[in-house]
Design a protein around this nucleic acid. Structure first.
Lengths: 110, 110
DNA sequence: TATTCGTATCGTAAAAATATGATAAAGGAA
DNA sequence: TTCCTTTATCATATTTTTACGATACGAATA
């Protein structure tokens, strides 16, 4: 019996991209956020500097504080990083669960 | 002996993001290209419709032909797809080698 | 309370992305 | 050759992104 759920899949295809709806939107948003050189650098910085504050990243990058803050917001909203208020500062770190989800999904659909 | 190549790596870190230079640029470009809902849909379409032409994708998507052509150009320049002239048309397909590279790299660095 | 520190947000300007209709160019058919 | 088909590119408008200085706000300090 053929149901609406079935799909004809090319056995020679190099990937399935079997994702849709909210998961696809989440995926696209994560792709978009990391598709920027500065934000990729911020992610790399967080690997070697876990639990750092905004000022550390501002020192590291050659751009204005306001711009760094904006990039951090984009990364946080896409789920790549976490930001926790610690007194007057904000402590940033990699969002392990979401990163693991992304890695797993890429492994699944590509 | 400590050399310039050595890096202090946090063993609890969830990823290494150990990539740089041209490979990092290539990675960011691929992220950027797929960080768009329409282009992601085009990629999904190509999975189920290997070796299709521009007109097929134009029929499938609710956007103008010129816009589809631009999106195809972005995907091609980022390395996600191939485009081969076949008579008056252009035959598009997934770029298997580059997709495999992307998948492998994501598995390595995340 | 007044001040300083750290950072997010506001207002704005410039650059890039997205979208469209019109056009051009190239291949095949009449 | 002339016409039709197909698609890329052009010119352009709109939206979004990126960047900055200025400002506001909360937390800690004097």
């Amino acid at each position: 019996m053929v149901t609406i759920q079935e799909q004809i899949v090319d056995p020679t295809a190099c990937c399935t991209l079997d994702i849709s709806g909210a998961e696809q939107e989440r995926m696209v948003a994560m792709f978009k956020a990391l598709g920027n050189p500065t934000r990729f650098e911020i992610m790399k910085y967080l690997v070697t500097h876990p639990a750092c504050i905004t000022g550390d990243i501002v020192e590291f990058l050659p751009i204005a504080q306001a711009t760094v803050s904006q990039h951090l917001k984009v990364l946080r909203e896409a789920g790549w990083i976490t930001g926790v208020t610690e007194g007057p500062a904000t402590c940033y770190g990699l969002h392990k669960e979401n990163i693991a989800w992304f890695k797993d999904k890429v492994g699944e659909i590509f």
